[in-house]
Nucleic acid binder design. Structure first.
Length: 245
DNA sequence: ACGTATGTTATCCT
DNA sequence: TAGGATAACATACG
């Protein structure tokens, strides 16, 4: 569920319901961070996403949902486990489980910089490059997971992007040639859209080149290690992915 | 059947 | 006190 493209899929599924600006007729769930009644009889102005955040925008506040590792949702269905937040409209309902739910006051644009989101129309590769250059000592395997630089990129995307760009995960930003830095930034968006397409076709895993693989496409042995300050599993090919220094 | 993991953050420790 | 380690969340997958 959790990486950016999966949130775009949720947004697309909701768009297909043609809800317009639906009024919340009933609110369910055990969300504790705010009073659920705040949403009652309010009109949803828009459904948005920013990276891994799913946003339900009202006139003067926004409900933010983060699915973390285990979160899930159902549209017009319910599961037996306790719902965290459920929104019931005239004809449809949305149910969110095992997620983190927060309420953001004011206009949503004051909370988010859309150009950080690899899936957004507003995405800015030049801004990403500028931010990377401000972190010369950071490792590429860490920086790809930095949501303030690559909002929406998760561990799968990280691994696949590094392989596509032929960059070894342990490179420092300052050691990468400019062309490689650009490749890193561009592939983070490119692969995210491929992820979206393949996930919709239920064919995500068969396109993995390194993530969860034993061999790379050139039949070299894949290394699997917990790397960087994030200690996330990193799959990489020592032969294909270069160390610059 | 069991170990692992598409993520984040609060809290405890050094 | 900054930082690092750890636990917590609950489910699907191989």
């Amino acid at each position: 569920m959790p990486e950016g493209p999966s949130i775009v899929i949720l947004k697309d599924l909701i768009k297909e319901l043609h809800l317009g600006k639906p009024e919340v007729l009933e609110v369910t769930g055990n969300v504790k961070n705010f009073d659920k009644d705040r949403l009652l009889h309010q009109k949803v102005e828009d459904f948005k996403s920013w990276g891994k955040h799913f946003l339900i925008c009202f006139n003067d506040f926004t409900v933010r949902i983060h699915f973390m590792l285990f979160g899930s949702y159902l549209i017009n269905e319910r599961k037996k486990t306790a719902v965290k937040l459920g929104l019931i409209f005239k004809k449809d309902e949305l149910n969110f489980y095992t997620c983190k739910v927060d309420l953001l006051e004011g206009n949503v644009n004051e909370h988010y910089t859309w150009q950080n989101d690899v899936m957004a129309d507003e995405w800015s590769s030049s801004t990403a490059i500028k931010k990377l250059k401000e972190k010369p000592n950071a490792l590429v395997c860490d920086v790809l997971l930095d949501q303030q630089v690559f909002s929406g990129v998760g561990n799968i995307i990280k691994n696949e992007v590094l392989y596509r760009a032929r960059i070894h995960p342990l490179n420092k930003i300052e050691d990468l040639p400019t062309a490689k830095l650009k490749a890193l930034v561009n592939e983070s968006r490119n692969y995210s859209f491929d992820f979206l397409k393949w996930k919709k076709e239920n064919a995500l895993s068969k396109h993995w080149e390194v993530y969860s693989q034993k061999e790379c496409p050139l039949k070299h042995k894949i290394n699997k290690k917990e790397l960087g300050k994030t200690h996330r599993q990193t799959y990489f090919c020592e032969k294909c992915q270069k160390i610059y220094k």
